[in-house]
Design a protein around this nucleic acid. Structure first.
Lengths: 249, 249
DNA sequence: TTTGAAAATTTGTTTAAACAAGTTTTTGTT
DNA sequence: AACAAAAACTTGTTTAAACAAATTTTCAAA
């Protein structure tokens, strides 16, 4: 697939950081050098670096340079700031994903559901319950609610593979962004049974609620992902915006 | 404080979105119009919009425009992608923060601590336990570990107010970025007592581990924030990077 | 009225240039 | 050798311009 120049540079720098081609705690080559290396303009190389900063791979220091502060993290972590299907995430980490469809029904939105997900009352939807395994261990129960209007033709078979692949490649839907809220909630009987949890041991779990939008600005998916507390791990990097005077060291 | 132009535009657009000056689901004024409004270049206005996209406030659609998809969220939520002290976050949400210092000691890093936080064995540190209240309710227990080398002169009194304010304004430290990991963990006796938790009710809690870096690339702070499960709420927005062919709505 | 091509409009990418601001190195003077 | 000023180098901000790509609008022909 044709890529943009800054994306190629971004990925190349990222790789060089991850493979220790750039030394930890050292400065990356200066913008001027990178411009020569990649034969591009300053803006383009700065755009790539900007993404590395957001990723927490480097920190950029006026007058000094760009310092590599990347440290490898443990596997199996879900990284924030990206929309990935379970399948994509697992494959990225070299793990073996398996998905079992517990429930696949068509229904319309009642008041309770409308309140928690925001779909209009009476909307026609697909409701899918899926259990996700990683390397044979049941880790996540997903409750997916898809607006039928935008996801025609979903089947149980598709749900066993990858729904996003179907939406993007077959229906040519453009998935734009996803708002997520993480909370801790009590486990239910379903959680207990499916994830082999023991309330004596863990009576809570991590819950990620996602609200996903297409290019029409419509929220077409609401998903509640209920994670085994022992395996849940979310990563994030925050950049401090200078509130006061900078200066020093 | 002197601000950059794009930051002024960003904040102004953000305000106009939050106050419904721009209609939900409608397109914002085109870049050309914004250029006239703010009397700036296209790059500058695009930089501001880029931040709104990252915030999940708008979605930007080639050939169409920039659509307002902002929905107000409940208060008391901690938003990812920013480094904020408890105090800053509370004040931003118009809540009354209170902090009680449970423990303030100077110590050196032992093997157990070195393993979980990454400080070199034997480093001199401040170890601070603080209980944070919001509107009178105890919500968070923080275990802060600061490298003494970079945070000289910390006192219990400062810890009762704002440590970050001290580091930035008095020591003129530049805090750059913070890596965070969210997990769910068993509650301890301290948690149970301080947060008035009941193991029958909740035997787990949300834990946010932060690794914070200064402008020298040194991780000078490790903090474990243990949140009351009932009040913990983390927000995030993810932008889908097109994996396949776009095309269509 | 419908269809389809052309034009206009919108966002996306890339280059170039200038100046500001912070840090490091060099240089010259004492 | 020590100090201070100057120069060089680094990232940060802003403007300008050109072209690409996607969508919407216009308009002419059927």
């Amino acid at each position: 697939m044709a890529k943009s120049k800054y994306d190629v540079i971004y990925k190349d720098l990222k790789r060089k950081i991850e493979t220790d081609e750039f030394v930890y705690q050292e400065l990356l080559p200066s913008e001027n050098l990178l411009i020569q290396t990649y034969n591009c303009s300053r803006n383009t190389v700065r755009r790539a670096i900007g993404r590395l900063v957001a990723d927490g791979y480097v920190q950029s220091l006026q007058g000094k340079g760009v310092r590599n502060i990347y440290r490898p993290i443990e596997q199996s972590a879900f990284t924030l700031g990206e929309i990935e299907s379970f399948r994509e995430s697992a494959l990225r980490n070299g793990q073996i994903p398996k998905t079992k469809v517990l429930l696949f029904v068509e229904m319309s939105v009642d008041e309770r559901l409308s309140n928690c997900c925001g779909f209009p009352l009476g909307s026609e939807i697909y409701y899918i319950q899926r259990l996700h395994y990683l390397d044979g261990i049941p880790l996540i129960i997903n409750h997916n609610y898809f607006l039928k209007e935008f996801t025609h033709g979903l089947t149980k078979e598709i749900a066993e593979e990858s729904i996003y692949e179907y939406l993007e490649q077959i229906l040519h839907m453009t998935i734009v962004n996803s708002r997520r809220i993480m909370t801790v909630e009590k486990i239910t009987e379903i959680d207990e049974k499916c994830l082999k949890l023991n309330a004596e041991d863990y009576n809570c779990m991590a819950v990620v609620s996602s609200f996903t939008y297409n290019s029409q600005g419509v929220m077409f998916e609401y998903t509640q992902s209920r994670h085994h507390p022992n395996y849940f791990r979310f990563h994030d990097n925050a950049v401090r915006t200078q509130t006061y005077n900078k200066k020093y060291v």
